[in-house]
């Protein structure tokens, strides 16, 4: 469980920005990151991202949690690329050939994974669902019914971890035989887990149906709606987007001038 159910934004600078702008910027940045495959460009950006996150009030704990979660993926991406890319052999490990291109691209993709993961953790920890949905309603024309449905979905998400435990407890209570040796330890056989997942699906879909009726009887979609707490769009949001994109382009420019930038078109040539 990383951030499921934990929605109150911390006092980070990002939490005060417009969520649509934050998500949009993040999406554009990660699209731009598809271009470089060398480790230097995302590496420099990773340093910049961590520095900016710290300056914005994101605790080390959040950043380290991200690194711990995404580290294995980065290592795995590195490992497979080392031995599967054509290029000049630089080493032989357990019958597999490591190439120079493999090392370069592997390191590049691994650092990119860490960078994107870090950005995702920072954004997820500062995002307030109501502000996000309200902002999507204001900025990109999300309809009132779609907004209500998304928020109902979020309520379900909040309750999901507790409900998962409740269903597993309820089903464990049906088991015959002696007392469990370690109280509180729930059975984890694939069959029982699968059955618990199905029951979770059924009870949650039933709740969804009831929530839909509750929303209908509350007038959702009955006509034009108002917004109690609009999300303001300020100059800070423009500054955020411009700075983020500017830094990415600047770093890319610098690595290109230094001859370090590699893309799928140039790598191995």
């Amino acid at each position: 469980m990383t951030t499921a159910g934990r929605t109150a934004p911390g006092p980070t600078a990002l939490a005060r920005r417009d969520p649509t702008v934050v998500l949009g910027t993040l999406l554009v940045v990660s699209l731009l990151l598809l271009v470089p495959v060398d480790p230097w460009t995302p590496g420099a950006l990773l340093v910049a991202a961590v520095a900016a996150a710290r300056a914005g009030g994101v605790p080390w704990r959040t950043l380290l949690r991200g690194a711990a979660t995404f580290g294995p993926f980065a290592v795995s991406v590195l490992a497979v690329n080392l031995v599967t890319r054509p290029g000049v052999p630089v080493a032989h490990v357990a019958g597999l050939t490591v190439t120079d291109v493999g090392a370069l691209v592997g390191a590049g993709l691994a650092v990119r994974t860490l960078l994107v993961g870090t950005l995702a953790v920072v954004v997820a920890s500062s995002l307030d669902p109501v502000r996000l949905v309200t902002s999507l309603h204001q900025r990109v024309g999300l309809t009132s019914r779609a907004a209500a449905a998304l928020l109902a979905g979020h309520r379900v998400l909040e309750q999901l971890p507790a409900r998962w435990v409740a269903v597993r407890q309820a089903q464990a209570a049906r088991l015959p035989g002696p007392r469990p040796r370690r109280p509180g330890r729930l059975p984890a056989s694939p069959r029982l887990l699968g059955r618990a997942a199905f029951t979770l699906l059924v009870v949650t879909l039933r709740q969804a149906q009831q929530m839909a009726v509750a929303l209908e009887t509350r007038g959702v979609g009955s006509g034009p709606r108002t917004v109690h707490r609009p999300v303001p769009l300020g100059p800070g949001d423009g500054v955020l987007a411009a700075t983020a994109l500017g830094v990415v382009l600047l770093v890319g420019l610098v690595t290109w001038r230094l001859g370090l930038l590699e893309t799928w078109g140039t790598v191995g040539r």
């Binding site: 109501v130 009132s144 209500a148 509350r218 007038g219 108002t226």
Partner: peptide, 16 residues
């Protein structure tokens, strides 16, 4: 259907 009490009560008014 909403995460806080104030948003919950306000939502009935917003949609009307």
């Amino acid at each position: 259907c909403l995460p806080t009490v104030e948003d919950e009560v306000a939502s009935g008014l917003e949609h009307r």
